[in-house]
Design a binder for these strands. Structure first.
Lengths: 132, 132
DNA sequence: ATTGACCCTCCAGTTACTGGAAGCCTTATA
DNA sequence: TATAAGGCTTCCAGTAACTGGAGGGTCAAT
């Protein structure tokens, strides 16, 4: 199978597939003409990677998850640990963003948004008190 | 004032200050010895940048905000537009992350997390049905 | 004169791709 | 058979916003 077919079947773009090969996530063979030769298994792996990435797992997480995926002797606790860790980081990000949102919403509400220069948003960002 | 003092007063690290000069956010003079020479105004600007960055504004947003900050003829609607746009992007990110969290929380809950290989997390990532 | 704390520049690495250039391979059509 | 379209290849560069480190001047105090 050529890279285009695999891209279509897995949902992962050709560029990304080549990149994944570069960093050693997949190892397709080569045809005589130099084209990458993929198997069904590669399609599965790439779809796996696509889903993992969509859930926000880093490439390194993906590497780990893929290894566990292929390891018949894995213990589910290993997988769970990776997922829990990732979950924690997502929650941290959410909290950070929510805090930003709270502040920003507040500032945006306070700002008249008219032709005058006075602006509570700039006032808040500014370390010196603006027009009082 | 040298870069170290400015860093302490503004809360922005020296490396970052140099970077901000590189990309044209600030333009300190130079002393005869080649050291950057900062003024109080630079400290204000850097503190401004620090706060804007903490609210998640991009560097380009910061550039715009800084220009508005210094423009006495600005209209608050300009500032508000930047903030509202940013707020929208934050909200998008939050939604994406919350969706990930929902899925991940669900998967983590379902996973036994023991010594056995069966794992709903991997099963979900996998395009082929695992052990049924 | 030397030590230690600053300061300087320049280069490289981070994350996960993505775009583009230059050029071969294959397949279909005129 | 010539050629054109589309697919494949490699390699280089750029993205965002820094951060770390090497190699090397400067300054203040001892």
């Amino acid at each position: 199978m050529n890279i285009g077919d695999v891209a279509r079947q897995s949902g992962v773009p050709p560029k990304t597939i080549r990149y994944y090969e570069d960093i050693g996530l997949i190892r397709p063979n080569r045809s005589e003409n130099g084209y990458r030769a993929f198997t069904e298994n590669h399609v599965h792996k790439l779809a796996f990677l696509g889903r993992a990435r969509a859930l926000g797992f880093t490439i390194e997480d993906c590497r780990t998850l893929l290894a566990l995926y292929e390891d018949e002797n894995r213990e589910s606790v290993q997988v769970k640990a990776v997922a829990e860790d990732h979950l924690r980081q997502i929650e941290e990000k959410i909290e950070k963003l929510q805090s930003m949102r709270t502040t920003l919403t507040d500032l945006v509400e306070k700002c008249a948004g008219d032709h005058r220069p006075d602006c509570p948003i700039l006032a808040d960002l500014s370390p010196v008190r603006m027009s009082e």
